[in-house]
Nucleic acid binder design. Sequence first.
DNA 1: ACGAATCGTAAGTGATGACTTACGGTAAGT
DNA 2: ACTTACCGTAAGTCATCACTTACGATTCGT
Lengths: 105, 105
Amino acid sequence: MAYEDAITALADPMRRQIIEKLRTGALPVAGIADGLPVSRPAVSQHLRVLSDAGLLTVTPQGNRRLYAIAPEGVDDVRKYLDTLWDDALAAFARAANEKAKGRTK
Amino acid sequence: MAYEDAITALADPMRRQIIEKLRTGALPVAGIADGLPVSRPAVSQHLRVLSDAGLLTVTPQGNRRLYAIAPEGVDDVRKYLDTLWDDALAAFARAANEKAKGRTK
DNA sequence: ACGAATCGTAAGTGATGACTTACGGTAAGT
DNA sequence: ACTTACCGTAAGTCATCACTTACGATTCGT
């Protein structure tokens, strides 16, 4: 039931851009906001959404807060798409069979 | 460059519900709209979005139009999440190593 | 040929959300 | 202790989008 929030969170381009900056490892808020065309509070709000969706982990470290991608949250969406892909392929194959049968009539 | 549109399309709950109805196979618009709490034109608009995102295929059949899930479109999003998952795991492992090294200091 | 069915599109409305500036709170440095 | 740095939250604005009703086009049945 968690993958819905994760997909919704990943739908925003700015949030995907944030995710991209975290691919190589954890970063503090200022490090994430650096280079992005929006204000730092805006980044904080996005980080909140991503965290609530289970896509990010937060580890307070002294003055700052380190954000990192949560592999488990990504995996939830992954598994949903896997089952969807399986079903889509099965339905596709079945439709192809039906069509072939009709053609030979 | 296509997975972005696909994720955006999948972000809407009603569109995910439509996808669910197509898991078992293709359906005409009326068949999709049946049981859904929105009007048929609303469903048509969602189908348009999903098609443009590459997640659905349309096959006009006489009077009606059959919509089905496009496995290829789903696979695009799948592959994006796979690479994201890989990077997240690698970053996580590296951070764990850093922490362990610090702990033994 | 005519009526019914199936579907897409246009126009308009309401709600959601992404962004800004302003402010408060906590930790580090001197 | 006082200042500085880092960060989250509140309030308000503006654009986007999901939905509705109304309409037009195409295809099937009689």
